[in-house]
Design a protein around this nucleic acid. Structure first.
Lengths: 228, 228
DNA sequence: CTGGATCGAGAGCAGTGCTCTCGTTGAAGC
DNA sequence: GCTTCAACGAGAGCACTGCTCTCGATCCAG
């Protein structure tokens, strides 16, 4: 039915435009997105926004999901561009891509990984997109184990940790040894911490050469996970 | 002059009470502190608060500084309670203390290490208190090097990184080898990331045994920094 | 061609940070 | 001891927020 799809199309375009202007406001004004300002910017009145998003939180959720996908896409494509056998090269490419995206979209990064908005609880729609970045990072390790290039560590894990990790492994990375998964998650945690410290100004004026520092730290983590 | 100090004393008590109720609101209502709600809770009118804090940001800054000191105190005393020669024990104690404090004061932790409030720029008064936690953590490594229990790694650091780290070392940890400082900062970054992922719900329902997972991850970082 | 869903505008509510003014009070200087 | 001036709390008010409700207008479907 092309008639109804005209209606539906302008509606979809409207939703896209709202998200686009909201993203623009996010980039310029910071993380405290004002619905009224978005509406004003579009020549609308604030109540009209509610025809498309039931609340401000729903708009934020939509932006968050898109941001997760944008970050995931950046990390995945950076990984994909490197020779599959070059595990260390892939690791560095993925980490750098995450940081580059974060520096280019600081407010959106803060939306994803900053302190959660007080009343806001992440809906289930966000959990899969949120898994994309760590998934590709640890996927590199899985590939390494699969083709024998990467020897899993022989850490002895205390029991509750081992079984918890085993559950994650069977769900997301079948066949990945638990000890290596633990180290991979350490790498992911470290990547998040590095970017956050940098982006949120927690380093102060120290370390003026952030790119080189970042590369060195990711290299340390590459050593920890055992990349050759 | 005791007369003037009466005036000054009730003023100081007033300031303390404002901070206390603000901290209570922070704990119950989350990170979006409402000045009016604090005033209401104290039976005052909102404009009266401005006699004591020129703006909401100044109140937040005061809370942030106190929170940094509380966290720093917790970490330092946990470290101090362990035999000075037991470097690994001190490391674990310090890390656990940080996490314990964060779990007990989630909103204040978010204030310290979450995404920065949009318009808010951390004043200089906060930088020294903010250094206390990483300072004690890396201080453990300095002690280890000083008494020969900890062999510094022989990483070769790319040049801009080495000199940046050297500058930090001369200012805060004289005599600490740059490569070890780099690994110590990795440990600090990791600690922050671990706590943040846990506290901000970024782990989802996975890893139900958070304490054990945390201990394992900090042990991994203890290995990375070379603690025996 | 008509009925009903969809849409935008506008008014309004409760809340926010912050400013200004106006009495009151209390302490310091003469 | 009295006066003067700073400090204080209350209240009104401004501009802003998210959100709700109502009222016309529009537009598509049966």
């Amino acid at each position: 039915m092309p008639a109804s799809s005209i209606r539906a199309r302008v509606r979809a375009e409207m939703i896209d435009e709202i998200k686009a202007t909201a993203r623009r406001h996010l980039a310029t004004d910071g993380a405290d997105l004002s619905l009224r300002a978005v509406a004003r910017d579009m020549g609308m009145v604030s109540s009209a926004i509610y025809r498309y998003f039931p609340s401000r939180d729903d708009l934020l959720t939509a932006l968050i999901i898109e941001a997760y996908h944008a970050l995931g896409e950046a990390v995945e494509s950076a990984d994909a561009a490197v020779d599959r056998a070059d595990l260390r090269g892939r690791w560095h490419a993925a980490c750098r891509a995450a940081r580059t995206w974060a520096l280019a979209h600081p407010a959106e990064y803060a939306l994803l990984y900053g302190s959660p908005v007080p009343g806001y609880a992440a809906p289930v729609d966000t959990v899969l997109p949120a898994q994309r970045p760590p998934r590709t990072l640890i996927g590199i390790l899985r590939d390494g184990v699969a083709d024998g290039r990467l020897a899993p560590p022989d850490d002895d894990l205390p029991e509750p940790v081992r079984s918890d990790l085993a559950e994650i492994a069977t769900g997301l990375f079948p066949g990945l040894p638990e000890a290596l998964l633990a180290r991979g998650m350490a790498g992911w945690t470290q990547l998040f911490g590095l970017i956050s410290f940098d982006l949120f100004g927690r380093l102060g004026p120290a370390l003026p050469h952030r790119d080189a520092y970042f590369d060195h730290q990711t290299a340390l983590m590459a050593d920890l996970v055992g990349l050759p």
